[in-house]
Design a protein around this nucleic acid. Structure first.
Length: 688
DNA sequence: GCGGATCAC
DNA sequence: TATGGTGATCCGC
């Protein structure tokens, strides 16, 4: 709390080394925190990493000090003004309170570790962690007793717990078991939100009503069904909104649940003593700032210090903090979103050898390009991320005139960005592409395109009423629940599980519609990315526009000036846009291929699926799918592995489970003539 | 639009 | 020996 070094810091310097993993977590109750803290400090001390952490800490202390000064400078008039502002905002927020919905958050217990124990029962009862000597994904509860936990480097964990068993991550196992849990979830809310492989949010309002039972009973039943289906335990939280449900699921972890009734008083009581760090979106830094500047450590104090919050933070931040104080957050049904960027990065042993660094850059370009091709993405902003040998992170970006996706294009521009940084010693290089051309998909000839797209892709699940916070609350709900990232800590070894089929999610989901409850293991991976993630989607652009409008800072209408380096503007004879999978299909004229698919400008010549010519994106994706299929066949014929889904083999340990899978998701070829109307039928006829 | 930072998993 | 990878958002230029 105190900004400067105290006497005890000098005697016990580890006390001032703040790490993310000293934060209390489930299963860490009986841990000797002091000892853990000391060991972590001792193991880290003197390293480059440690020095960087100290720099960052110092910077935050400075920031806090600066904010304190600003707060102290507020005049009485200022304060009274902001007090009124805060009171008004609190009233407005309170008016959005929604207590008619019941949300359930499920969180698998030590998921990766539990799955590993399932496939190797001899691990049972022994301290074990999933990950490497460099970094752990998670630890089982036996290991947590020693202070070992996720995000901790393995070599420190081993110091804390010399008998710790290390198990390498096997992402496919987790994806498979995640699929099993999701089949259970689907029975309670077909539109549940998957937050990650091991977490999900379910709106159980309807199922409670239909069956005339309480949220508590649903939670019990759901957890036991998850256990029956997977052999894994999970914890659940039931509350009137997602933010609270998430907090609740943590309370009786592992293998427990906690129910917060839909009652305003209950919510306020619950929230009042709750440490702010428990709230999703408030991390180590925000906690430090709120505590250091305003002495805030519980949610209740957010309201008490409302005037300061309104005075010192942006409107959206202040709104978020105040709503936390009120126990609001996430009762609407967020619709699906499209990804906004795609990236690839790798850590390696630090080097300043330019040739080596360029080689790394080329590798990353290849990986990124391959990922982009798989999803049919191309974008016009390229961002280079660097981490120096001293752990300093930098980024450099260009926005180009044309959309790029080939590794050559990526490498060309990335090299220009990197060139300017020499000499430099790096331990990480990353590349990200954003500003996709697909989100320009609003231009289609047919103005209803957007609606239709969403509808086709997502089956247009029944809209729920009671969208609170619609006026400004997008900020609030947006802070959470949009992240469907796999959380694997994947080192160079595996690009597993992700988007295996090279099929954009839209198409997969479209095909899913006919068979939505049946996921085969082979398709479980894509289901991850394609199903839940994007099945609750709405125009993210609406929100973005809203925000930009409100902040109204920069004149948006400036001419599209491009910051592309002029050297690279050399136009090769580019046939504009259809270059998505150019690299892969270089042998055969790609553009022609796309045209060939559509017989009479209506039907797919390969599988009979009908798509009117105005369904531009859908057609593109559909064609891409067939192309990808063909490429896979070709590639497997030649024995190259480049495009072959690597994880389609059922690992031996769950061969027995395979029978549970009812059906396979049909490939386009199996869907024989899926008429347009059937999509509409699904819309209204969606059951459960 | 860029770059730094924070956060979640 | 050794401290990850992916994606999103926000803020201040």
């Amino acid at each position: 709390m105190e900004g400067s070094e105290s006497a005890s810091d000098k005697q016990r310097p580890w006390q001032s080394y703040h790490t993310v993993y000293t934060n209390a977590k489930a299963g860490m109750e009986g841990v000797d925190k002091e000892k853990v803290q000391r060991v972590v400090y001792e193991m880290s001390k003197g390293s480059k990493y440690f020095e960087n952490e100290e720099r960052k800490e110092a910077f935050i202390r400075q920031k806090i000090e600066h904010m304190r000064v600003r707060a102290a400078k507020l005049s009485a008039a200022d304060l009274s003004h902001y007090q009124k502002v805060a009171e008004k905002r609190i009233l407005e927020l309170e008016a959005t309170r929604e207590l008619s919905r019941i949300w359930l958050h499920v969180d698998m217990d030590a998921f990766y570790a539990a799955v590993e124990t399932l496939s190797n029962p001899s691990l049972k009862g022994k301290p074990m962690a999933v990950g490497s000597m460099s970094m752990l994904s998670t630890a089982n509860y036996e290991a947590r007793k020693f202070g070992v936990r996720a995000a901790m480097p393995g070599f420190i964990a081993r110091k804390l717990c010399p008998n710790l068993i290390f198990v390498p991550t096997d992402f496919n196992k987790y994806t498979y078991y995640s699929g099993l849990t999701r089949e259970v979830f689907r029975n309670y809310d077909p539109n549940f939100l998957a937050a990650s492989l091991d977490e999900a949010y379910l709106d159980i309002t309807r199922v409670c009503k239909e069956r005339g039972i309480t949220g508590e009973e649903i939670a019990e039943e759901l957890r036991s069904r998850v256990h029956e289906e997977t052999g894994l335990t999970c914890s659940a939280g039931v509350a009137p909104n997602r933010l609270l449900a998430k907090v609740c699921s943590d309370i009786n972890k592992p293998n427990g649940q906690f129910v917060l009734p839909n009652d305003r008083m209950a919510v306020m009581t619950f929230i009042s003593s709750l440490p702010i760090r428990k709230i999703g979106g408030i991390g180590k830094v925000t906690e430090n700032i709120l505590k250091g500047v305003h002495g805030i450590s519980t949610c209740k104090e957010m309201l008490q210090k409302g005037s300061f919050l309104c005075a010192l933070f942006s409107r959206s931040s202040a709104d978020f903090f105040l709503s936390v104080g009120l126990g609001l957050g996430g009762t609407d049904t967020p619709e699906a979103r499209f990804r906004k960027s795609i990236s690839s990065e790798r850590t390696f042993s630090a080097t300043e050898d330019a040739a080596l660094l360029y080689q790394k850059l080329a590798d990353i370009s290849e990986m990124l390009s391959a990922d982009m091709q798989k999803e049919g993405l191309s974008g016009r902003t390229l961002t280079l991320k660097l981490k120096t040998a001293s752990f300093e992170v930098r980024s450099r970006a260009v926005t180009l005139q044309k959309y790029i996706c080939s590794s050559d294009d990526i490498l060309k521009h990335a090299s220009n960005l990197l060139k300017a940084e020499f000499p430099i010693s790096l331990r990480l290089i990353g590349l990200r592409v954003s500003h996709f051309n697909v989100d320009k998909g609003d231009i289609p000839v047919d103005p209803t395109q957007k609606t239709l797209t969403k509808f086709l892709i997502f089956g247009d699940y029944p809209k729920r009423t009671g969208d609170d916070q619609s006026s400004f609350g997008s900020d609030l709900s947006d802070l959470h629940f949009m992240n469907e990232k796999e959380t694997s800590i994947s080192l160079d070894s595996h690009r597993t599980g992700h988007y295996e089929f090279g099929a954009p999610f839209e198409r997969n989901h479209l095909l899913d519609i006919d068979d939505s409850n049946c996921i085969s293991y082979e398709n479980a991976c894509e289901m991850d990315k394609t199903g839940e993630l994007f099945s609750h989607k709405t125009a993210a652009t609406v929100k973005t526009d809203d925000v930009e409008e409100r902040s109204a800072k920069s004149p948006k209408k400036e001419l599209s000036r491009v910051s592309e380096d002029d050297s690279s503007v050399q136009r090769e004879s580019e046939d504009s846009n259809t270059d998505r999978s150019n690299k892969e299909s270089s042998a055969s004229g790609n553009e022609d291929d796309h045209k060939l698919f559509w017989v009479d400008d209506y039907k797919c010549s390969l599988c009979g699926t009908e798509l009117p010519s105005s369904f531009i994106e859908e057609r593109q994706e559909h064609s891409d799918f067939h192309l990808a299929e063909r490429l896979q066949e070709e590639e497997s014929g030649t024995g190259s592995n480049a495009l072959i889904p690597r994880q389609r083999v059922m690992p031996k340990e769950y061969v027995g489970n395979q029978n549970r899978r009812k059906k396979h998701k049909p490939s386009p070829a199996k869907v024989k003539h899926l008429p347009i109307e059937s999509f509409f039928a699904k819309k209204s006829g969606q059951k459960l």
